[in-house]
Write a protein that binds this DNA or RNA. Structure first.
Lengths: 148, 148
DNA sequence: TCAAGACGCTTTAATGTTAAACTATTATTT
DNA sequence: AAATAATAGTTTAACATTAAAGCGTCTTGA
């Protein structure tokens, strides 16, 4: 049993990049998440609230696609946000299968307070890379994520 | 309400890199996960099994740190793997607080079958970047994940 | 020495997550 | 127009995950 995996150069290169990608994302996710965790918001809840705040009302399936979660999960996330009065459901008139979700004043106030802090934390985290490196990094990430 | 968030260049740059990092990791994680999901292994279960397979027996806290999960979670992951006979617990003799986890022959056989497929999938995924880009990407990820 | 604290693991309770089955609504086909 | 299929959302059951409290075990320091 080897102390570490050992393979061909192309395998080790790919595996190393893969592991480091997952670790970096976990680390950054955890760091950035502290901002809204302190407000009792789960990552999914914050992602939904943020989309509604910056883009406007959207239906559940649109949100599910946007935050990469299942539709079943979104039913619950929307429900929990609605319980707290941060969003409201509204059935579409044209096609009654659709349920549109919109942020409320209370939700807007919360985001107006939390989002700037969150953004500054992200800027801090990303400042470990220079501006040019950040742009290069974003390009590489984009090419790796092309399959969804 | 703006259609999209709009901030200073440094904010937009950081936010863009942040979002693309999370999307790339989600995408790659989902793609790579198919390999072991077909074997009824959760991501955490596979991560633990892989560590035991390539590194050797480790105690639970070591594994928890390695796969970035809580100790409580590891109790359950280890328990579920043990139920399937893929690993065994063994209390340390020197310090009876420690519980060492080791892969069994059955677990080794499973990994011998699954890991090469998993590795090849990762190579495929990462081949969207050239070898030099993969190395550069790994370096950038490393600098972003320095806080854990 | 022995009391206090630190440490590793487990348990518990609450929540998040998913896949799959289900309901209601709209679109398509014949 | 009626039957069929497709779509959006919800429900359900099973499991994952976490924070916090609890339980043994070791370490430390008065």
């Amino acid at each position: 049993m080897p102390r570490h995996f050992h393979g061909t150069p192309r395998q080790e290169r790919a595996l190393s990049a893969y592991v480091k990608l997952l670790r970096a994302s976990e680390s950054v996710r955890a760091e950035a998440g502290r901002t809204f965790a302190g407000q009792g918001l789960s990552p999914s809840q914050f992602a939904v609230l943020e989309a509604l705040y910056h883009v406007g009302p959207m239906c559940l399936s649109e949100l599910a696609h946007k935050i990469l979660k299942t539709s079943g999960n979104l039913t619950m996330v929307a429900g929990n946000l609605e319980k707290r009065g941060l969003v409201v459901r509204q059935q579409s008139a044209e096609d009654r299968r659709f349920v549109s979700l919109a942020i409320t004043d209370k939700g807007r106030k919360l985001m107006a307070r939390v989002f700037p802090v969150h953004l500054e934390r992200i800027v801090e985290l990303m400042n470990r890379l220079s501006p040019a490196e950040q742009e290069e990094f974003a390009r590489l990430c984009l090419r790796l994520g092309k399959n969804l």
